[in-house]
Amino acid sequence: MNRNRIEGSWEQVKGSLQETWGKLTNNDLDVIEGDRKQLAGKLQERYGIAQDEVDSQIKKWNDADYDNVR
């Protein structure tokens, strides 16, 4: 996966993101539009976690959940 862009069907990915991070709103997901940096920023904002933890969570999500969406 390109580290700056989440590839594939964004509509399907949005559902997986909301299952994993329930604090993300539909408006957040509209802003993110598949951009990994935007996702990281929104997760930091919504959950108050550090960048390294955000990166770890996104990687874990990508390895587990995103592969099932593709």
Rank of each mutant, 00 (worst) to 15 (best):
W10F: 07
V54E: 07
W21M: 04
N68V: 07
V69P: 05
I58D: 01
G48S: 14
N27H: 10
A50G: 11
N4H: 09
S56E: 14
Y47S: 10
I49D: 09
M1A: 11
V13A: 05
L39Q: 00
E53P: 01
Q12W: 04
E19N: 12
G48N: 15
A64K: 14
E19K: 09
D30M: 06
I58C: 02
N26R: 03
R36P: 00
K37G: 08
R70F: 12
D67G: 14
Y47R: 11
Q12P: 00
A40K: 14
E53T: 15
G22R: 08
N62W: 06
D52S: 14
I49F: 08
Q51G: 09
T25Q: 03
N4D: 14
N2G: 13
K59A: 11
K37Q: 07
A64T: 13
E53H: 12
D65H: 11
E45L: 10
R5K: 15
L24F: 06
S16D: 01
G48W: 06
V54N: 11
Y66L: 13
N62G: 08
I58W: 01
T25R: 03
A50L: 10
D52A: 10
V13I: 15
D63L: 10
R46I: 05
E7G: 03
E53K: 15
V31T: 10
E11I: 09
R5G: 00
I58Y: 03
G8S: 07
G15F: 04
R3E: 13
D63R: 10
D67W: 07
V54F: 07
L24Y: 01
N4T: 06
E45G: 04
R5L: 14
Q51R: 10
K37S: 11
Q57Y: 13
I6N: 03
W21K: 01
E53V: 12
L43M: 05
N62I: 09
Q51M: 13
W10R: 04
G48V: 09
D30K: 07
K42Y: 05
G8N: 06
A64E: 15
D63F: 04
A40G: 07
G34L: 03
K23W: 05
I58P: 02
R5N: 12
W21S: 06
R46K: 15
L24E: 02
E53S: 14
A64V: 08
E7V: 09
A50E: 14
Q57P: 04
N2Q: 13
G48L: 08
T20Q: 09
I6V: 11
